[in-house]
Amino acid sequence: MEIPALDLTQTRCPMALLLAKRECRELASGQSLEIRICDAGARQDIPRYLLNQGYDVLVQTDNSRLFVITVTKRL
């Protein structure tokens, strides 16, 4: 099963954080979402917020500018 993706590479914080929060609220337990970002502020704010809200978060980088955050809603 392919993980749905949210492309926020053209969006800066705080809008990137608001859009990520909205999408993550729609996840069912155990469901994952891949968020792609480039903004340094979003790179710090999104994982911190989601961890505080009880999501599992994995941050990876494809290169020096693109970050991929895989978010999974805990059961």
Rank of each mutant, 00 (worst) to 15 (best):
T11Y: 07
L50W: 01
N63C: 10
T9Q: 13
A20E: 06
V68D: 08
N63V: 04
I35P: 04
R65A: 15
R48I: 01
Y55K: 06
I37Q: 08
V68I: 13
L33M: 04
A28L: 11
T11N: 11
R48E: 12
L75I: 02
M1W: 00
I69F: 09
G54Y: 04
K21N: 08
Y55P: 09
R74W: 00
N63K: 01
R25I: 02
P14V: 12
G30T: 01
E34G: 06
T61D: 12
A42Q: 10
G41P: 09
C38Q: 12
Q31Y: 03
A40G: 00
C38R: 15
L8I: 12
P47A: 06
E23I: 02
T9L: 07
G41T: 00
L58G: 00
R74S: 12
K73C: 02
I35T: 09
Q10I: 07
Q53A: 11
L50H: 04
E26H: 08
G30C: 05
R36L: 15
T61Y: 01
P14C: 14
S64L: 08
C24A: 11
L17W: 06
F67S: 15
S29D: 05
T9D: 06
R36D: 04
L19H: 10
L27D: 01
R65C: 11
I3A: 05
T70R: 15
T9C: 13
Q60K: 14
I3W: 01
S32Y: 03
L33V: 08
P14G: 06
P47H: 02
Q44M: 09
T61C: 13
Q10F: 00
S32F: 03
I37F: 07
A40D: 13
L58C: 11
V59M: 04
C24K: 06
G54D: 06
S64Y: 12
M15C: 04
G54P: 05
E23T: 05
L33I: 03
K73T: 01
Q53R: 07
Q31I: 03
Q53T: 06
C38I: 08
L19A: 08
I35V: 15
Q53V: 01
E23W: 03
I46D: 08
